[in-house]
Write a protein that binds this DNA or RNA. Structure first.
Length: 831
RNA sequence: GUCCGGGUGGCGGAAUAGGUAGACGCGCUAGCUUGAGGUGCUAGUGGCCGUUAAGGCUGUGGGGGUUCAAGUCCCCCCUCGGACACCA
C-alpha cells in the first residue's frame, strides 16, 4: 500500500501508486515532452541533457538524484513555454556487459539490452519529462557506425594516429587505459594496480588542442561551470612556461633538448638525466655501462604505477657513461638515467639543478653529485640542509645573469640562448594524447585495415559500419589481445587499396569516444547519412544545461570539449564548447559513507519508491540540500515529504471543490494574493538559480498560507485560494509531477499541468502594505516598528527616536549620529 | 606537497550590492484530536542569566582588523572534505 491512509478527519489523501500509473499512461499517450523541429515554431529553444546512463542494472539512488535535478531544469523550461529538447539515451558499450557475458556464457548484447529495458521502465516510472522518440544506445550499429566515421575524419587530419609507447595496462581487465582512466595508479574501473607496458596503440591528438581547451574556458567561467571542474581541467592540462635548451652530447651528432621552467638556473646545472624508459637512454648508454643500465631498466619495468609514484621513494638511477655539455659555460655534465624523469613529458630528459630543485637535490645527494647554488635566496645551503631553494633571489656565478632577479634572469637567459641558437622560450603541457585502443570486445571496432604493402588503410565510408563479429561467452575472455583477433573470418579481409590479403585492426575504441558526441546525435537521432544534422545541432546546440557527476571532470567532460572543437574545425558545428552550463549533482550517501555492498548500507531506490511513492522520493532528494551537495539518506525523511505532499494535495482538492477554473483572482483576499505573488517571484528566481531546496521551502510556506486562508481566513471558495493552489500545482510539477497533475485535475483543469503554465508575478502585489523596521541603538535591535514601505527617511528617523524602548537605551547619552536605511532599519549611535 | 571547496542550533540546511542570524524541514516538548498507534491540528524549541514573567547578556571554527553595523569584507591561524601528485 503506497497510500497514506486517510480518514474522516483528515479528508482527502492520494494514492501514490494509482497516480503514477494514471499519469504515466497519460504522458505516454499525449507526449507533452517532445522537442519540436518545426521551423515555424518560434518558441525559445532549450536544450537540457543529463549525462546518459550506463545500463549496469536497475536505477539506483545516485540516478534518482541526478535525474531529478535534470528533470527540474527541463520541466521548468517546459513550464516557461520553451521548445525543450530533453532527450535520453544509454552509454551501452563497455566492460561490465562483457564480463557478464563471460560469466553467463552469453552475448553482451543480451545483458545490455535487458538492463536498458529495465532502466527505461524505471525512468518512466520516475516521471522524468523526456523525449522518448530520440532515445539512443551507443551499442547500436546505427550509432557506432558514426564513431567509425568520425574516427576516419580524425585519421585523415592526423588527429588519430598509432605509435609505440609505454602505456597503462590493467592486468585485471587485460586492456590498456588512457591516462585519465588511471586514478592514483589504479584502474578507474576495477581498481587493479596499473602497470606499464610497451605497445603500439591508437591515440587521439588531444594535445594539439591543449591551448584551446584552456583558452575556451573563458566561455565557461563566471559560474557557468563549477570552478572546481575548471580548476581540475586546468591542472590536468598543466601548462608550464619556460625554455627549451639544447645540450650537446659528447659523441652524438645532434644535441638533446630539455624543457625547463627555470632556465635562469642553467649555470647551476651539474648533471643531466634521461628517462630510464625512453629510447634516448637506450641510445646514449655507453657500452661499459650497458649491464648496469639493462639491470636498472628491468627493475623499473617491474614497478607498478603505485610503487613508482610513492612519494617517499628514494631516488634511483644509473650513470650512462656519457657527458652532456652546458651550452652557456661549456661545463661537462654526467648523463644519468633515472625513473624520476618521465619519458612522455617535455623531451624525456632534464638538466638537473640540485641547488634549486628538490628532486634533483635528492638525486644528487643519493649519488654524490655536485650542488651549485646560483640563486642567492638567503636560505641556508641546500647541500647542507637537503632542502632545495626555489624562491626569489639574486643570480650569482652565472656570467651575464649575475645580479639579476630570478624573473629578469629568465628573460635574459632566453635572449642569450636564442642569440646563440641553443635554446628558445617554450611552453609545455602535462596533458598527454588520448589513448583510445582497447583490447576488449564490447566496443566500436577501429575501422582500419592493416595491409603488408599499403600500411594503415581506412575502411571506405560506404563499408561502414564495421560490425562486431558475433562472439560470446568464453570467446570473450581476456587474453591480453583483443578477442576480435580470434574471429579470423572477420579479421582477414582484402586490402581496400591493393586488393591483397590484409587484416582488420582488432582493437575497439575506448567507450569515451561514444560519449564524446552523443549529445549531438540527439538532435537528429535517426539520421543515416551523417553522425548528426549540422543545421539541427547548430539550432539546438550547444547544450544549454548539462547535468552529471563531477567524476567526469577530466574524462568525459574533457573529451567532449575536445571533440566539439575538432568537429567545429571540420565545419560540422558552429560552436566550440559543448555545454553552456554544467551542474554536478552531489552523491546520495548513507550514514556518512558512500553506499556499498561491503558496508551493507545500500538503500534500494525501488523499495523507497514502493514505500513512499516517486513524488515523495524526488521531493526528499531535492529538498534535502542544494543540488551540488551530497545527501545523506540517514538525515532525511521521505515521510516528511509525503506529509507535505498530502497537505498540498488537500489544499488543491479543497480549492478545486470550492471554485471553478477561470475565476478572477482580482476579487480574492489581498493578503493571500500578496503571498502567492511573492512566492511566484521568489520561486522563479530560486529555480533559475538552481536553488531547488529553497524553492521547495517557499512552496511549503505557500501551502501553509493557503491552508490558513481556508481554515481561518476567507475560506476555500475565495479566488485567492484558487490562485494559490494553482501555483502550488505548477510549482510542484517540477519536483513532484504526479501529485501536481492530480491536483491540477482536482482544480478542474483538463490536460497536463506540466507545460506552459508558469505565471508571472504581478508587480503591484509584490509591494508590501507595511514592513518591519528595526530600531537599533548602538547597532543592537531595541524596537521594531511597522511602517509603510515608502516611508520618508526623515519621518522614519523621528518615529525611531520617539520609540520608548529605544529611548530607554539612549537615556541621557548624547546622540552622535542616526543612520537611516528606510524602510528597514534605523541605527542610533550614542556616546 | 600543490590546487580547489567547506566549517552556522541536537540534525539537513536558510540568510552575502554588509543592515532583525537560524527561513523551511527533521527531531524534541506540551496540548487538542484518537479505542490505540500513526495521521491531522495548535503552541514552543541556539545558549546562558532571570521565580513563571518582563527582560537582559551572548552567539555563525579561533584570533586580529575595517565599519554606525560583519556569518557576509581584509589579514593570520585551526580544521574537515575533495582533486592532483617525482610534470622538470
Amino acid at each position: 500500500m503506497t497510500a497514506v491512509d486517510g480518514d474522516q478527519k483528515t479528508g482527502d489523501t492520494y494514492d501514490a501508486r494509482a497516480l503514477q500509473d494514471k499519469w504515466q499512461a497519460r504522458w505516454a499517450a499525449e507526449l507533452p515532452f517532445q522537442g519540436s523541429e518545426d521551423p515555424g515554431d518560434t518558441r525559445p529553444r532549450s536544450y537540457v541533457v543529463d549525462m546518459f546512463a550506463y545500463p549496469s542494472g536497475d536505477l539506483h539512488m545516485g540516478h534518482a538524484e541526478a535525474y531529478a535535478i535534470g528533470d527540474v531544469i527541463g520541466r521548468y523550461r517546459f513550464q516557461r513555454g520553451d521548445n525543450v529538447l530533453h532527450p535520453i539515451g544509454w552509454d551501452s558499450f563497455g566492460l561490465p556487459a562483457e564480463n557478464a557475458a563471460i560469466r553467463n556464457d552469453s552475448h553482451p548484447a543480451e545483458w545490455t539490452y535487458a538492463n536498458i529495458e529495465t532502466q527505461a521502465a524505471s525512468f518512466r516510472r520516475y516521471g522524468i519529462a523526456v523525449d522518448w522518440s530520440r532515445r539512443l544506445h551507443t551499442s547500436d550499429p546505427e550509432y557506432y557506425k558514426w564513431n567509425q566515421w568520425l574516427f576516419l575524419r580524425f585519421f585523415e587530419r592526423g588527429l588519430a594516429y598509432r605509435k609505440d609507447g609505454q602505456v597503462n595496462w590493467c592486468p585485471q581487465d587485460q586492456t590498456v587505459l588512457a591516462n585519465e582512466q588511471v586514478v592514483q595508479g589504479r584502474c578507474e574501473r576495477c581498481g587493479a594496480d596499473v602497470v606499464r607496458r610497451g605497445l603500439n596503440q591508437w591515440y587521439f591528438r588531444i594535445t594539439d588542442y591543449a591551448q584551446r581547451l584552456l583558452d575556451d574556458m573563458d566561455q565557461l567561467d563566471d559560474g557557468r561551470w563549477p570552478d572546481e571542474i575548471l580548476a581540475m581541467q586546468r591542472n590536468w592540462i598543466g601548462r608550464s612556461v619556460g625554455a627549451d635548451v639544447h645540450f650537446a652530447i659528447e659523441g652524438r651528432d645532434s644535441p638533446v633538448t630539455v624543457f625547463t621552467t627555470r632556465p635562469d638556473t642553467l649555470y647551476g646545472a651539474t648533471f643531466f638525466v634521461v628517462a630510464a624508459d625512453a629510447d634516448l637512454a637506450e641510445e646514449l648508454c655507453a657500452p661499459e655501462q650497458r649491464a648496469a643500465f639493462d639491470a636498472y631498466r628491468a627493475e623499473v619495468a617491474k614497478l607498478s604505477d603505485i610503487e613508482r609514484q610513492a612519494t617517499e621513494r628514494p631516488k634511483t638511477g644509473v650513470f650512462l657513461g656519457r657527458y652532456a655539455v652546458n651550452p652557456v659555460n661549456g661545463q661537462r655534465m654526467p648523463v644519468w638515467a633515472a625513473d624520476y624523469v618521465l619519458a612522455d613529458y617535455g623531451h624525456g630528459a632534464i638538466m638537473a639543478v640540485p641547488a634549486h630543485d628538490q628532486r634533483d637535490l635528492d638525486f644528487a645527494l643519493a649519488f654524490d653529485l655536485p650542488v651549485k647554488v646560483v640563486v642567492e635566496t638567503g636560505d641556508p645551503d641546500p647541500a647542507e640542509t637537503g632542502v632545495a631553494t626555489a624562491g626569489e633571489g639574486t643570480l650569482r656565478e652565472s656570467g651575464p645573469l649575475d645580479g639579476l632577479t630570478k624573473t629578469d634572469a629568465i628573460d635574459r637567459i632566453i635572449e642569450v640562448l636564442a642569440e646563440r641558437g641553443t635554446g628558445d622560450a617554450a611552453v609545455n603541457f602535462r596533458l598527454r594524447d588520448w589513448l583510445l585502443s582497447r583490447q576488449r570486445y564490447w566496443g566500436t571496432p577501429i575501422p582500419i585495415i592493416h595491409c603488408p604493402t599499403c600500411g594503415e588503410v581506412p575502411v571506405r565510408d560506404d563499408q561502414l559500419p564495421v560490425a562486431l563479429p558475433e562472439l560470446k561467452g568464453a570467446e570473450l575472455a581476456p587474453q591480453g589481445v583483443s578477442p576480435l583477433a580470434a574471429a579470423t573470418d572477420w579479421v582477414e579481409v582484402d586490402c581496400p587499396a591493393c586488393g591483397g590479403p590484409a587484416k582488420r585492426d582488432t582493437d575497439t575504441m575506448d567507450t569515451f569516444v561514444d560519449s564524446s558526441w552523443y549529445f549531438l546525435r540527439y538532435c537528429s537521432p535517426h539520421l543515416d547519412t551523417a553522425p548528426f544534422d549540422s543545421e539541427a545541432v547548430n539550432t539546438w546546440g550547444p547544450v544549454d544545461h548539462y547535468i552529471g557527476g563531477k567524476e567526469h571532470a577530466t574524462l568525459h567532460l574533457l573529451y567532449a570539449r575536445f571533440f566539439t572543437k575538432v568537429l567545429h574545425d571540420l565545419g560540422m558545428l558552429s560552436f566550440t564548447e559543448p555545454f553552456r552550463r554544467l551542474t554536478n549533482q552531489g552523491q546520495v550517501i548513507n550514514e556518512g559513507r558512500a553506499m556499498s555492498k561491503s558496508l551493507g548500507n545500500g538503500v534500494d531506490l525501488g523499495k523507497e519508491i514502493e514505500a513512499y511513492g516517486v513524488d515523495a522520493v524526488r521531493l526528499t532528494m531535492l529538498f534535502a540540500s542544494p543540488p551540488e551537495e551530497d545527501v545523506d539518506w540517514a538525515d532525511v525523511s521521505c515521510t516528511a515529504a509525503q506529509k507535505f505532499l498530502n497537505r498540498a494535495f488537500r489544499v488543491m482538492s479543497e480549492a478545486g471543490a470550492a471554485s471553478a477554473p477561470g475565476t478572477d483572482a482580482a476579487a480574492g483576499d489581498a493578503g493571500l494574493r500578496r503571498i502567492t505573488h511573492r512566492s511566484i517571484d521568489q520561486i522563479t528566481a530560486l529555480v533559475e538559480a538552481r536553488r531547488f531546496n529553497v524553492a521547495i521551502a517557499r512552496t511549503m510556506e505557500l501551502v501553509t498560507a493557503a491552508r490558513r486562508a481556508i481554515d481561518s481566513g476567507p475560506g476555500a471558495a475565495d479566488p485567492a485560494v484558487r490562485e494559490a493552489a494553482e501555483f502550488v500545482a505548477v510549482a510542484l510539477s517540477l519536483f513532484a509531477p504526479y501529485v501536481a497533475e492530480e491536483g491540477w485535475e482536482r482544480l478542474g483543469h483538463t490536460g497536463s499541468v506540466a507545460v506552459g503554465n508558469w505565471p508571472e508575478a504581478d508587480p503591484d502585489l509584490l509591494v508590501q502594505e507595511s514592513v518591519t523596521c528595526v530600531v537599533q541603538v548602538q547597532s543592537k535591535v531595541r524596537d521594531k516598528l511597522s511602517v509603510a514601505p515608502d516611508i520618508d527617511p526623515a519621518e522614519l528617523e523621528q518615529l525611531a527616536l520617539a520609540s520608548e524602548k529605544a529611548q530607554g537605551f539612549i537615556g541621557d547619552k548624547q546622540i552622535r549620529k542616526v543612520i537611516v536605511r528606510a524602510p528597514k532599519l534605523v541605527n542610533i549611535v550614542v556616546g
